[in-house]
Structure formats: structure tokens, C-alpha cells
Amino acid sequence: MNLLTVLLLFTAMVLSRVSNLRTAVKILLFQSIMVTAACLQAGWNTGEAHMYIAAVLTVLIKAGLIPFALFRVVKILRRERESNPILGPNISFVASAILIVLSYWLIDRQLPGVVSRDALAASVSLVLIGLLLIMTRRQAVMQIIGLITMENGLYLLGLSVTMGLPLVIELGIFLDVLVAVVVLVILTYRLKLSFMTTDTSVLKKLKG
């Protein structure tokens, strides 16, 4: 198990504990840098130019534009914090540990003896922990972070099982992620304006 996967899993587990939005964005930034490093490592191992392009894009978008947008919105949301999550920090910390074990079990069962076992398990864990964050956090920004964690996981999965998708598809995915974050940040900003809070538990009017 190499250092990168350990660090990635570490960021995901810490994300399940934090309640301060600014800290969460910082951890996400660190996570994205780790993803870039993984990408560079893959490029180094295979010698494919397309990996380096993907790494540059990851740095630009996931470690650059997205954290920038999130930092800006967090600045506006000064007092907002994850005060009332559906699962408390301790329980979700344990839950994310269980999810990591689950991913190892899944990988060993579906792909026994695969070379990139640790990387695969780490990426599946990232997807699952991202999902956990989206489901159990009430702050809009935390849900966005969950979504990006999930996307990072998927990206790593693609990297470790298929050496990345073809470049044109990957470009499209990067663009989509970027636009998704922009749309979500606009909506978060509007939530703050309309509801005076970005706690999504206030969104319960539409039913039936």
C-alpha cells in the first residue's frame, strides 16, 4: 500500500469528521492534489503523455478553480457550519472506516488478485464516503464536497483499472465537473439569499 492511497483514504476519513466548512474545503484541496500526484505517478509508470495532460487539468480545475469557487462561497457564508448532521462525527467516522473495509472486500471478491488492489479499493472507498457525505450532511457546501470526493474516486478508479478514459471523454468529464460546481455554488449563494441559511434541511416544502 503506497503513501498516496493512505493519504487519500486519510483525507476522506477526516472529511467525515469536520464541521467547519473552510477546513473541509482545505482538506478537499489536499485531496485533489493527491489525485494529481496519483495521475503523475501513472504518467511516470506508463510514459503516456495523455496522463500528464490529465494531471495538468486536474491541478487547474480540481485544485485550482473548484477550491477557489468554494473558498469564495464559504467566505460569504461566514457563520455557517455543519451543526446538525444526520450522523454525528464519531458515527460517520466509524461508518467511513467500515466503508473502506467493505471496498476491500468488494474488490477481493469481484477482482481477486488484481495488481492495483489498493488503488482500486481506495477509489471505491472515496466514492462510497462521498456518497455518505452527501447523504448525511445538511450543509450545501458539505454536499458539494461529497460530490467532488465521489468524482475524485471515480477518476482514480478509471485511472487504476483502465489507465484513464480517452482524453476527449476525460476533457468532457472535467468540464462537466467544473460546470456542476459552478451551478451548485450559484444555487448555494441563492439559498443563502432566500433562506438566510445553507442548511438544506430547510428544503422540505415540495412534497406529494
Binding site: I134, L147, L154, L157, L187, S194
Partner: peptide, 25 residues
């Protein structure tokens, strides 16, 4: 951009993006 429209849009993006992430998987 009224309250109900925001609620609908937030749920729409969240649910569909998570769903579509699974499709990417």
C-alpha cells in the same frame, strides 16, 4: 429563484448528478 424553485433545483442537481456518477462508474 424563489424558494420552491431553489429547492427543486438543488434536489434535481444533487440526485441526478449522484445518479449520473453511478452511470460513469
Amino acid at each position: 429563484f424563489n424558494r420552491s424553485a431553489l429547492e427543486a433545483a438543488w434536489k434535481y442537481v444533487m440526485v441526478c448528478t449522484v445518479g449520473i456518477c453511478l452511470a460513469l462508474l
